[in-house]
Simulated assay, not measured.
Amino acid sequence: MTPDNLAVAIRTFCMQHANEANVKKYSRFFKGEYNAYGLSQPEMQAEVKTLRQTDGITLETVLAAAPALIAAEKYEEASFALLLTDAFGKQFSRKTFDTIASWYAIGITNWAHADTLGMIILPKFLLQHIVTVEEFRPWLQAKNPFQRRSVPVTLIKWIKKNPGEITSLFPFLDILMQDPVREVHQGIGWYLREAWKLNPEATEAFLLQWKETSPRLIFQYACEKMQPEAKARFKRSQPVKK
């Protein structure tokens, strides 16, 4: 199967299983327009399993088909590209990492696709020792905010396997503490919440450094699991001047 044939097969499957009721149902999770066919996650996962077992579909085929799918207007086409890529995770290489990095400029434009990358796909490159954390440094200043968001989300699995790295990662992630974009605030806040579970003392010390200057949404996420009296420590001492 050629990359073009794979893209056509995915698009045809999506059109055949379109569900307007699901589009309305899922749209509440997305800001702005949600342009989708309305496929459910189980439907996509089942089709990915079928495609994975189809003769002629390799990681190279998927990576070659991915740009057209990721650039497509409909949400599920990019989803299929990501899920199929993950199905070949044991074959990942440094070249695969560089290819995936290029997708953000093509069409990674929502939190769900960014988090599929950060939660599922990108951690494999760290855990399989294909790249190091340092390879993500340029992403912290990427033009695409969803690429910036993907860094802390990716590091969640890394610190769960390597809790001793938490302290050294705070300076690495400093730049995101004043990022201007809400979706990035959510990503770094989520990371800090998970870091706090593993090393509360170090994480709280880091948060205290930023409590007067960082967006409050970061703290909303980071402090979510704390007791009320602990959360109170991270309130700003002075209201933000408008």
Results as ranks from 00 to 15, higher is better:
residue 31 K to I: 09
residue 48 V to F: 10
residue 46 A to K: 15
residue 92 F to C: 06
residue 75 Y to P: 04
residue 15 M to S: 11
residue 184 V to H: 09
residue 79 S to E: 09
residue 204 E to L: 04
residue 29 F to E: 08
residue 210 W to C: 04
residue 225 K to P: 03
residue 227 Q to V: 00
residue 141 Q to P: 00
residue 100 I to S: 04
residue 55 D to R: 09
residue 96 T to Q: 03
residue 117 L to I: 13
residue 53 Q to T: 10
residue 153 V to G: 02
residue 125 F to M: 04
residue 107 G to P: 10
residue 101 A to R: 06
residue 242 K to F: 11
residue 95 K to H: 15
residue 212 E to H: 06
residue 117 L to T: 03
residue 219 F to D: 04
residue 99 T to G: 00
residue 125 F to W: 07
residue 115 D to E: 14
residue 212 E to D: 12
residue 126 L to W: 02
residue 72 A to W: 01
residue 236 R to M: 08
residue 212 E to W: 05
residue 224 E to R: 10
residue 72 A to I: 09
residue 130 I to C: 12
residue 23 V to I: 14
residue 151 V to S: 08
residue 57 I to Q: 02
residue 120 I to K: 13
residue 39 L to H: 03
residue 199 N to S: 15
residue 67 P to L: 13
residue 30 F to S: 03
residue 200 P to K: 14
residue 82 L to T: 03
residue 24 K to L: 14
residue 157 K to T: 09
residue 140 L to M: 11
residue 69 L to I: 12
residue 125 F to I: 05
residue 27 S to K: 08
residue 154 T to I: 06
residue 125 F to D: 02
residue 39 L to V: 07
residue 160 K to F: 13
residue 96 T to P: 05
residue 206 F to P: 00
residue 119 M to E: 14
residue 127 L to N: 11
residue 206 F to T: 01
residue 241 K to L: 14
residue 155 L to C: 07
residue 173 L to R: 06
residue 132 T to E: 14
residue 124 K to M: 02
residue 4 D to F: 12
residue 123 P to A: 08
residue 121 I to E: 00
residue 128 Q to I: 07
residue 233 R to H: 04
residue 98 D to Y: 08
residue 190 W to D: 07
residue 130 I to W: 08
residue 173 L to F: 10
residue 10 I to W: 01
residue 88 F to R: 09
residue 197 K to G: 01
residue 164 G to L: 14
residue 4 D to N: 15
residue 83 L to G: 01
residue 30 F to E: 00
residue 3 P to K: 12
residue 239 P to M: 06
residue 57 I to F: 04
residue 135 E to P: 00
residue 90 K to T: 15
residue 217 L to Y: 14
residue 240 V to Q: 11
residue 134 E to L: 08
residue 226 M to Q: 01
residue 99 T to D: 07
residue 182 R to T: 06
residue 11 R to G: 03
residue 59 L to T: 00
residue 75 Y to R: 13
residue 154 T to D: 04
